[in-house]
Design a protein around this nucleic acid. Structure first.
Lengths: 138, 138
DNA sequence: TTAAGTGCAAAATCTTTGCAAATGT
DNA sequence: ACATTTGCAAAGATTTTGCACTTAA
C-alpha cells in the first residue's frame, strides 16, 4: 500500500517533519508485517528515545497513519494504514494473521464473511485474527 | 455451561480446594461475561492477595478451567471454559463480543463462517471478535 | 519567533519471582 | 507429614507524565 513518501504523509496530516518520525515511517514501510514497539525500539533504539517512539506511534495512530493490532500476547503491533483510513476511522477490516513460527503479523486482504449476531447484539466492528503458518514458514 | 460445583472442578483437575480458588470460581460463575484481573481484584481484593489471583488465573488457564480473551485494550479477560475444553486444548472458537457501552465481554455461541486463506497461509486457529452494543445496551 | 516535538528523569501500572509461613490432603 | 498454595516484599517490564531544551515552519 501507499508508496507515498514520508514527507507527504507527515505534511498531509499536519505533522512536523522530524528525523524521528521519518525513521519510524521508513521502518514501517520496510516491513510487510506489523511491528511492536519493542521491535521498533530494538531497531531504532540508538537513534530514538523510547518515550518519543511511544509518542510518535500514538500520534500516528490518532491521525490514521498507522493502525494497531494486538498480537497473541496482547502486545500492540503497528502497521501502516491503507489509503482509505482516515482520522478516527480505520478501515482495517481485513484479516490479521499471526504466524506462530516467525511471529510476524500480516494484514491480509481477505474478505471476511458476515457473521450473524444473536438478537439484541449489534456489531459495529468485527475483527478476525488467524494464527498458523505464514507463506514463508509453511 | 457447566453448573458443576467448584469442589468438583478443582478435584477433577487435581487442584487443592482452597478458599481463594473457590472465590474465583464462584465469581466467574456469577458472570455471564468475561472478567479481567483488575475487575476480579476489585471484587475480591479484600480477601485475596493480588499475586495469588494472578497465579490462580494462570493455573486455571493451564488446566483448561478458564480461557482468556484479550479485550480491545489488550487486557486479558477470563471466562469459564465450556465442558469440551481440555487441558492445553481449548474449544473457544465462538464469537467474542465486546460491548462498547457497558464494556462487558461475551462469549456467544455463533458459528463462525470459514475464511479462505491466501495461498501459503495455513490457519490453525481463527478468532473473531466483534464490538458494538450488547443486548442490554442496545 | 513560537508552537510542536524531543529527551531525560521519574512516576504509575501491570506482571512475575523468591521465599517463609500457612493450609489441604 | 509433606507437597501445594498463599501472602508479602521486592524485582522486572511496560507505558505514561512533567518539564526544560530543541527544532521545524
Amino acid at each position: 500500500m501507499s508508496s507515498v513518501n514520508p514527507d507527504e504523509v507527515l505534511k498531509s496530516h499536519g505533522l512536523k517533519n522530524t528525523k524521528q518520525r521519518q525513521l519510524v515511517l521508513e521502518e514501517l514501510a520496510k516491513m510487510n508485517s506489523a511491528v511492536s514497539q519493542p521491535e521498533l525500539e530494538k531497531t531504532l533504539g540508538k537513534e530514538m528515545d523510547r518515550v518519543t517512539l511511544y509518542r510518535i506511534l500514538s500520534t500516528f495512530e490518532e491521525k490514521g497513519i498507522v493502525h494497531s493490532i494486538l498480537d497473541l500476547n496482547g502486545t500492540t503491533n503497528y502497521a501502516s494504514c491503507s489509503a482509505s483510513c482516515t482520522e478516527g476511522h480505520h478501515h482495517d477490516e481485513h484479516l490479521h494473521f499471526n504466524c506462530t513460527n516467525c511471529l510476524k503479523i500480516y494484514c491480509l486482504d481477505v474478505k471476511i464473511p458476515n457473521v450473524k449476531m444473536p438478537s439484541g447484539f449489534k456489531a459495529v466492528h468485527v475483527d478476525t485474527t488467524a494464527s498458523g503458518l505464514c507463506n514463508n514458514c509453511s
